[in-house]
């Protein structure tokens, strides 16, 4: 085994520069998603954004969450988005304007929101606790899902089942 402990290596390199790197990638690519004129490129930058979020999860020692993020968002959701773009022939070749004449008003509201959130984050007294790192985080997640959070877990599965049945009904061919 060449690398005994991945999280150890990450904390050795020190998490802070890595955090800034990932944050920069997330913000820069998210900006590209909402500003590029080619919608296919936007979709690809969305994938990059979601992938960098997985990087942040790794820094937080949530490896399971990181992998699931890649599996669900990169592997399934964004493929679906790209599919929708490819199947819509009018979207494919057009240059799409992502803003309209209300861009200044939108920007103003965005800056206000940014200031509000930065303000509330800085002036809140956060309760911080030094918890020891959870050793087997998949085991812990599994146990919690089956005991403490069993009701939300089941409710979510019912919602997913409903969505699944809905998709089948919508996609079913009409019998003449």
């Amino acid at each position: 085994m060449i690398l005994e402990n991945l999280s150890q290596l990450i904390s050795d390199i020190s998490t802070q520069p890595l955090f800034y790197l990932f944050s920069f990638v997330i913000i820069a690519s998210a900006m590209c998603v909402v500003s590029l004129k080619n919608i296919f490129h936007s979709a690809l930058f969305l994938i990059l954004t979601l992938f960098a979020v997985a990087g942040i999860y790794i820094l937080l020692h949530a490896e399971f969450l990181a992998v699931v993020q890649v599996l669900i968002y990169v592997g399934a959701v964004s493929v679906l988005i790209i599919f929708a773009i490819m199947l819509t022939s009018r979207l494919a070749s057009k240059k799409i304007e992502q803003s309209n004449e209300q861009v200044t008003l939108g920007l103003f509201i965005c800056v206000l929101f940014l200031l509000a959130s930065v303000g509330s984050l800085t002036y809140t007294a956060w309760n911080t606790v030094d918890l020891p790192m959870i050793e087997h985080n998949i085991l812990t997640i599994g146990k919690l899902l089956m005991t403490r959070y069993v009701l939300p877990f089941e409710v979510v599965s019912v919602v997913l089942l409903a969505a699944l049945i809905g998709a089948v009904v919508l996609a079913r061919e009409e019998k003449a």
């Binding site: 690398l3 699931v68 890649v70 599996l71 592997g75 493929v79 087997h136 985080n137």
Partner: peptide
């Protein structure tokens, strides 16, 4: 690296092939 998420990591990373 013997990651504790081993097989799940492989499944996730190979989904980039589709992209």
């Amino acid at each position: 690296a013997d990651l504790n998420i081993g097989i799940l990591f492989i499944v996730a990373i190979t989904s980039f092939t589709v992209i």
